Amino acid sequence: MTLRLNIVIASTRPGRVGPVFGKWFEAFAQEHGKFEPALVDLADFNLPVYDEPRHPRLAQYEHEHTKAWAASVKSADAFVFVTPEYNYFVAPSLVNALDYVLSEWHYKPAGFLSYGGVSGGLRAVQSAKQLMTSLKIMPIPEGVPVFSYAQHLNEGVFQPTEIIEKGATTMLDELSRWAAALKPMRAA
C-alpha cells in the first residue's frame, strides 16, 4: 500500500509564492514514486485563529473548517510543509494550523521545503520543529531550503537546481522510511 504524503502550502497571504513550490514538489514526489502525494493549501481551509470551544485533545470539533482540516491531517502518513520565513519565524498560519488538531498529527514524519532570502527559510523550519515535537510529529533533519528564491523563478515557474533536486530526493527517501517505521504506532 502506498503511503500518502500531504504537501502543505503554509502561507495564506495574498501574493504568496508557496503554491509555485508546492506544485513543483507534488510533481517531483509523484515521479519519486514512494508516496501518493496530495497538495493541501491552508488557504482553502480558512482557519481563523483557533476558535473551537474544546481543547483539541478531545477531538470534539464543532466547526466545519476544523472537521475538514482534521480529516486532511488524519489522511496523511507524512507531511512536507512548504513554508516561507516571516520575521525569522514560521508563518503564523502554519502555527495556527498545527495547533488546531492534536491526535491527527501523532506519529507522522514531516519534512520541509522552505524558501526565503539568504536563510532559505531555515530559521522558520527550526522554530516549527519545536512545536511539532510537542504534537508527536517527527520532524526529520533532511529538508529542501530554497535560498534567494526569486532567482529560481522563471515566469512564475520554479527552476530547481541539481542540489535542490538531490535534497528533495533524500528528504522523500527519509520520509518514506520514517512513515513506514511509524505506521504501527499510528495504528495502535
Rank of each mutant, 00 (worst) to 15 (best):
M1H: 10
L3C: 03
R4S: 10
I7R: 00
V8D: 03
V8H: 02
I9R: 00
S11V: 02
T12S: 08
P14E: 09
P14I: 05
V17Y: 10
G18Q: 07
G22Y: 05
K23E: 15
F25I: 06
E26A: 14
Q30H: 12
F35D: 06
F35G: 08
E36S: 14
A38G: 09
D44G: 08
D51W: 06
D51N: 14
E52I: 06
E52L: 10
P53Y: 12
R57W: 07
L58M: 14
Y61K: 11
H63F: 05
T66Y: 10
K67W: 02
W69C: 05
S72F: 00
K74R: 15
S75G: 13
D77G: 03
A78C: 10
A78W: 00
P84Q: 07
Y88F: 14
F89A: 15
F89H: 09
F89R: 05
V90T: 10
V90F: 00
L94E: 06
L98P: 01
L98K: 03
L102S: 10
S103N: 10
W105G: 03
P109Y: 02
A110K: 00
G111M: 02
S114H: 00
S114L: 01
G116D: 04
G116N: 03
V118I: 15
G120V: 01
G120W: 00
G121W: 00
M132R: 04
T133F: 01
I137E: 01
P141C: 09
S148P: 01
A150D: 12
Q151K: 15
L153R: 10
N154Y: 09
N154L: 09
G156D: 06
F158W: 04
Q159L: 12
Q159F: 05
Q159T: 13
T161K: 11
T161Q: 12
E162H: 10
E162K: 14
I163M: 13
E165G: 05
K166E: 15
K166Y: 05
K166N: 14
A168S: 11
T169C: 07
T170V: 13
M171L: 14
M171S: 02
E174H: 14
S176Q: 11
W178T: 04
A179W: 06
A181M: 15
L182K: 13
A187V: 08
